[in-house]
Design a protein around this nucleic acid. Structure first.
Length: 822
RNA sequence: GCCCAGGUGGCGAAAUCGGUAGACGCAAGGGACUUAAAAUCCCUCGGCUUAUGCCGUGCCGGUUCGAGUCCGGCUCUGGGCACCA
């Protein structure tokens, strides 16, 4: 037996063996049993944090397990390398974003390698390299041809002091984070991807993910897409100058409308403000603050009358029009019909500005006077005060009222989505240049494909937040591809979500001389995707969208349902907490993974993080529990190294103790397999390994008994295999000690021997009226009726029964018997 | 404000389909070994003045022979809200 468990040198030498043998390299074309395991790739912030360790330990355990099942496994890693932090770092430290980013990648790659994750590093992708982003530009041009890209004016956060657009994150309490200036909303022309054209398909696709994706993620995506059925309704302007269109899901309440509310940016508001100083001041006030929905929805609800009326489309009644700061220009028509009696927000607004409230729906036939209402009556019911529609229920009224509107040409049934088109323009430097050209003669034109990539210059020293592309003639000045005259290059770059929307596909063919090649269809879809729950909507929805774009651009097979979705199975992991809150530098509660690895080794870090909680739950960091994980690994190391191989052959019959131990070994295989494959509760799988290790340790003192020694050998060999996905370095070392040939990383996962699981006695719980009273042993093969008889006659039961006749006896096979006494 | 989760011993958790609440680990206490310490090993470990008893899974109520698990209401904590990634 060698000295003792020394994770640092042990892990280094095992990692060397893995590297020498290239075991984790995936073939270009896998056999019929392929498995693509993917973790959400990191932003190279410079330091590995515990969230990364958790994410990658989970995927690595899955990848290693699948490899031991004999599959061809693709398990790649790369860098989501464009984004805001590089610019911030550049401003702070005077390092060019590219330089900063690549230095961070070097450092973090070394950290990942030290963790011993089973990546195929030959497929590494870095999104800020032209080799990667040129295909994104290429795709953009294809989408332009398909009319899936367009320009439109939309709202951004504007910092009037720094003269720059701010990310929502950079708006703190309505002020710019650097300047402290009050942030304004500003309208600028931007590039959009028409994701709304895929709304129905993205919604329908969720059904196929049922059972494979967490229910909560499916629910969040459904709500985000937000399909709603309703009607669009025209309200003619009283002065005859046109009409205002609204969308509503409640046309049944149309006779209860008392005013219209318009988004401040609505053209009719803007028009009305030209001769209305008070309104203009109000609209100006509405411009203050950020653009995020959370800000808009939580601010005080304010409004101002436009001083013009519309006509009710059915009754012709005059209704006032208001501007309201909570109406979103980006949803529906930017205008809503307000029914205060039956919508809570309208109700509060009407009370605040003393606007009329008309009850038109009743639950029980009672019609309370408007003054008596304390809240809106939002449930559907029966119509009242609605003229010819009185007495209809809400559902049929929706239909009838919409028909009545359609007959007058003032309305129609409509399906509305909450999902908006994806604005991908960023007025930033560190991103993929949008490959378009603005020519004063010819207008907006795409960069010709042969001129791709449009290279992002990397030499700038940033002095202020303004994009240096705006001031660089070398970048800006181009020749118009159409007229040959002087033109200006587009300076907006793409949202970094674009890079992360297709990287999973590029990993299958990272050196392809096209965006993707046939290798994509060999490996896709990703069989298991793992990442933080914070990506439940945006990233995962955008990637699902891109998957369809790739397919529709002919890069993925069309007629094969295997390629419907990019991620066949999804696991969303919880956060790593310290003292109950998220680890962050500002809170000063971070734990550096590097320190843990230096002190205890990678196996301990990985084992702890998998053991501390089930993956989807948040994980509370604990230094002493890390010690515990380390102690366990040390115990396993000693247990294995104290055993002297070779394992003797097992005798034909085993003694009671040996048989019991062997049963536990095979029960453990069963539990660990289930908790790795279906349930993915790695903490439970590891707990089962600990129990097995405890049982083996008890037997280890008695190796002179031949049957026990043989079963112990089988147990140790099994334990090492079962631990290989969690503590791979230790497992390799122990595997070697047990005299096994080759790498445990390539060994076969153990199989359950059903014969070892057989039992002849079972322990049953006996309840009286649902309360636990006895635990009794019975033959395993007794029929339920026989069991019931045995229990009722059992001497230990008589004092519980007290000569009463049971009213009912419930027998749950192999578990319990509940006797209901009168 | 809207959407989605979660709440179980001193702590992290387990209980897979409505069927033994607390597996496994941490911490703590006691003991063995040691000149001593560390390491290691063994025992105890939800609460209640006795234990074949009663109570106990955020709070209030319901369904059921039986509820941590299902239903209704509340509360607190966390994630997302379209330019952080």
């Amino acid at each position: 037996m060698s000295q003792s468990y020394d994770p640092q040198s042990l892990e280094r030498s095992i990692q060397q063996r893995w590297q020498d043998s290239q075991v984790f390299r995936a073939p270009a074309k896998p056999g019929p049993n392929k498995f693509y395991a993917l973790a959400m790739f990191p932003y190279p912030s410079g330091q590995l944090h515990m969230g990364h360790v958790r994410n990658y330990s989970i995927v690595d355990a899955i990848a290693r397990y699948q490899r031991m099942l004999g599959k061809d496994v693709l398990h790649p890693m790369g860098w989501d390398a464009f984004g805001l932090p590089a610019e911030n770092a550049a401003l702070k430290n005077g390092v060019a974003p590219a330089q900063w980013t690549f230095a961070n990648i070097e450092h973090m790659r070394a950290q990942l390698q030290r963790l011993g994750l089973s990546y195929d590093w030959s497929r590494e992708i870095t999104t800020c390299t032209p080799e990667y982003y040129r295909w994104e530009q290429w795709l953009f041009l294809q989408l332009w041809k398909k009319n899936l890209v367009y320009q439109k004016v939309s709202t951004v956060n504007w910092d009037p002091v720094d003269q720059t657009v701010l990310a929502n994150e950079q708006v703190v309490d309505g002020r710019g984070w650097r300047s402290g200036a009050l942030v304004e909303r500003r309208e600028i022309n931007q590039w959009f991807l028409r994701i709304s054209a895929y709304a129905d398909e993205l919604l329908a696709g969720l059904e196929g993910l049922e059972g494979q994706w967490p229910e909560q993620v499916l629910a969040m995506q459904r709500n985000w897409i937000g399909r709603s059925e309703g009607a669009e309704i025209q309200f003619p302007l009283a002065d005859g100058s046109g009409s205002i269109k609204v969308f509503t899901t409640r046309p049944d309440t149309l006779l209860g409308v008392s005013y219209l509310a318009l988004a401040p940016e609505h053209p009719i508001c803007q028009q009305a403000a030209q001769h209305n100083a008070e309104l203009a001041a109000f609209l100006e006030r509405c411009k203050l603050g950020g653009v995020s929905e959370a800000v808009i929805e939580t601010q005080e609800k304010l409004g101002a009358p436009l001083g013009l009326d519309v006509l009710h489309p059915l009754t012709g009644e005059r209704l006032p029009v208001w501007a309201a700061n909570f109406v979103l220009m980006s949803y529906g028509e930017g205008a809503v019909m307000s029914v205060p009696a039956h919508d809570q927000r309208d109700f509060e607004f009407a009370r605040k500005y003393t606007l009329p409230i008309k009850v038109v729906i009743t639950q029980d036939g009672e019609v309370p006077p408007a003054e008596a209402l304390t809240a809106a009556l939002t449930k559907p019911g029966i119509l009242v005060h609605s003229g010819p529609f009185d007495g209809l229920d809400s559902e049929s009224a929706k239909k009838r009222i919409t028909e009545a509107l359609a007959a007058r040409g003032l309305g129609a049934r409509r399906i509305q989505y909450r999902l908006r088109d994806w604005g991908i323009s960023r007025q930033r430097y560190w991103g993929t240049p949008i490959p378009m050209i603005h020519c004063p003669q010819c207008g907006v034109l795409p960069v010709p494909e042969r001129q791709l990539p449009v290279l992002l210059p990397t030499h700038y020293q940033l002095k202020d937040p303004r994009s240096p592309l705006l001031d660089d003639p070398e970048f800006l000045e181009v020749t118009c591809p159409q007229c040959g005259g002087p033109a200006r290059r587009e300076t907006d770059t793409m949202d970094t979500f674009v890079e992360s929307s297709w990287y999973y596909a590029r990993f299958t063919c990272p050196d392809a001389q096209a965006m993707l090649d046939e290798r994509a269809s060999h490996w896709l879809p990703v069989d298991q995707y793992v990442g933080g729950i914070e990506h439940a909507v945006l990233h995962l929805l955008y990637a699902r969208f891109f998957h369809r774009l790739l397919r529709d651009c002919g890069l993925l097979p069309r007629q094969d349902s295997r390629f419907d979705e990019p991620f066949a199975r999804l696991l969303t992991q919880g956060m790593v907490l310290k003292d109950g809150s998220k680890m962050s530098k500002s809170k000063g509660n971070t734990v550096d993974p590097q320190g843990i690895i230096d002190r205890y080794g990678a196996d301990t870090a990985r084992l702890f993080i998998l053991f501390a909680a089930p993956p989807e739950q948040s994980l509370e960091w604990s230094d002493s529990a890390v010690e515990g994980a380390h102690r366990f690994l040390h115990r396993v190391w000693r247990l294995v190294h104290e055993y002297t191989p070779p394992v003797p052959p097992q005798p034909a019959s085993l003694g009671d103790e040996a048989r019991l131990l062997r049963r536990q070994i095979h029960q453990t295989i069963d539990r660990v397999s289930q908790n790795l494959a279906e349930r993915q509760h790695f903490n439970v799988a590891i707990a089962a390994c600990m129990e097995l290790s405890n049982a083996l340790a008890k037997a280890s003192g008695r190796t002179q008994e031949q049957d026990l020694s043989a079963v112990l050998g089988e147990g140790l060999r099994t334990l090492v295999l079962l631990l290989a996905p969690f503590a791979p370095h230790l497992a390799e070392d122990c595997w070697q000690h047990l005299g096994e040939e080759g790498l445990v990383a390539q060994a076969r996962w153990p199989q359950v021997d059903p014969a070892a699981l057989a039992v002849d006695q079972i322990s049953l719980v006996i309840q009286i009226n649902g309360k636990l009273r006895e635990r009794l042993e019975f033959p395993a093969d007794a029929a339920p009726a026989k069991l019931q008889e045995l229990v009722l006659q059992h001497p230990q039961m008589q004092r519980h029964l007290q000569n009463k006749t049971p009213a009912k006896v419930i027998v749950v096979p192999n578990r319990l018997i509940n006797i209901v006494l009168p």
